[in-house]
Design a protein around this nucleic acid. Structure first.
Lengths: 247, 247
DNA sequence: CGGAGGGTTGAGATTCATCAACGCGTGTGG
DNA sequence: CCACACGCGTTGATGAATCTCAACCCTCCG
């Protein structure tokens, strides 16, 4: 079992970060690499969790379904390098979420037992898990307040800001990593309102062409910043962010 | 530093669960017990996290504030035995949340350094933290789908169901543990709609008198159950839940 | 060429927030 | 002891915002 080189070179907390060779080997030896077609349901609400899923290539979404109408609420959207179900393993209950591929995907699956055993044996691994789960939790908190108290415009703006910082703050262009329907649902709105909101973004100096996003300048998205995102932004407090609400 | 006896006798995952005497002692020796009046702000968005807070008596809420209008989004409401800021410690960023007392409270504060060091030294403690954080995350996921795809009636119903199961499924009566404003905000609605929704609950056999909730029978709330809550319900699949949407 | 899926646009309906007023219980100060 | 103010909860009328439904365009693909 081998992973692509420089698979771990990302800024997000990673499952295998700083693990010793032997520790990593133990995990990989008991894991399975698998290919899936797009739209494949890997986990259903109510299933007992069996694996942690690590996306090698492709994309997944995790979501909940309401029983009556069948409406979906997207919890997370995962790209290459992301994991899911690590948190669910430790909840001690059936899975509260569905997991589904949204593209053809290559997935590494690590069995539940292997993970639980390894947490006890390797405290670095435990810390990695803690970092990952808390990161998820942080995003969830942002989602909650976004849906509760932010306007659609603010939600899209904040989403763009995060994507922009992810892409490196020097790039004034970036791509939407998922199809618009999916992003819309993740942001708690219909595709229609998402589309309408995108047009409003023009007045902030943001041009949208298909999935390409182009910012007029590096400060176009400052308007949507908040205190815990400012801490990540390399422009914060160096040159004063023009529209920053924090000032 | 001593804790009340049988402080650990709860079904929720607890910070000090299964710790050895010496391990527990190390934690408590470096902690501070403090009393606060109601309404005291313990942590602000943007602060660097300094403590984990364990509620001995009283109540806290954690919430986020939107910059423009000052609207609040409640993330969690804590009672005696609950902790907060454990997750934030491992996010590696300024606190994304505010923490405030909603009652006069007695709080045990464990410094950040003590926690981080102890996670490495005692893997049982690491697992405890994982359990707690994943529990929070689970609740956050429920909040997200509640606000996204559930009607106010369903949100209140589900909230009641959880409180009912918390209180022990044999009790047909239980109390609202917080003031209605707060619960309303937690559920992502105004106090007005919360009040109006409470009246609708009567048609499901739920009587509300002030903060007292009285269920007509043990199945009154089955209508609001979902797959991951059913796993906790002692009535599930024994006697078939009458209105259960899962069947 | 035709169909399917994603995205956009428009018109209408619904729902919840907003605003305002009131009742009620409590605590306070004259 | 009473008057009053205050906070919380409730109720009603109004309006705005977003969802819904429908039609249309586009691209991709068989």
């Amino acid at each position: 079992m081998r992973l692509p080189n420089n698979f771990n070179e990302q800024k997000k907390p990673q499952l295998f970060e700083k693990l010793s060779e032997s520790s990593l080997e133990k995990l990989l030896q008991n894991s399975v690499m698998q290919d899936y077609e797009s739209g494949r349901l890997l986990v259903q609400q109510g299933d007992t969790p069996e694996y942690v899923y690590l996306v090698i290539e492709g994309a997944l979404k995790t979501f909940r379904i309401e029983s009556e109408e069948g409406h979906e609420a997207t919890i997370r959207m995962l790209e290459s390098g992301d994991t899911c179900m690590e948190a669910v393993l430790f909840m001690g209950c059936p899975s509260p979420i569905n997991v589904q591929t949204v593209n053809p995907s290559k997935i590494l699956q690590i069995p539940e037992r292997v993970i639980k055993k390894h947490v006890i044996e390797d405290s670095q691994f435990a810390v990695n898990l803690l970092r990952i789960v808390t990161r998820h939790y942080k995003n969830a908190m942002h989602q909650i307040d976004a849906i509760n108290i932010k306007s659609p415009l603010q939600r899209v703006g904040y989403y763009f800001l995060v994507k922009h910082l992810d892409a490196g703050h020097k790039n004034l262009d970036f791509d939407l990593p998922f199809q618009k329907q999916l992003i819309a649902n993740y942001l708690g709105m219909t595709p229609e309102t998402f589309s309408r909101t995108l047009k409003q973004m023009k007045s902030f100096g943001i041009e949208i062409e298909g999935e390409k996003i182009k910012m007029r300048d590096a400060f176009s998205l400052c308007h949507f910043c908040d205190s815990d995102t400012a801490a990540i932004c390399p422009l914060h407090n160096k040159e004063h962010c023009r529209n920053c609400l924090l000032h």
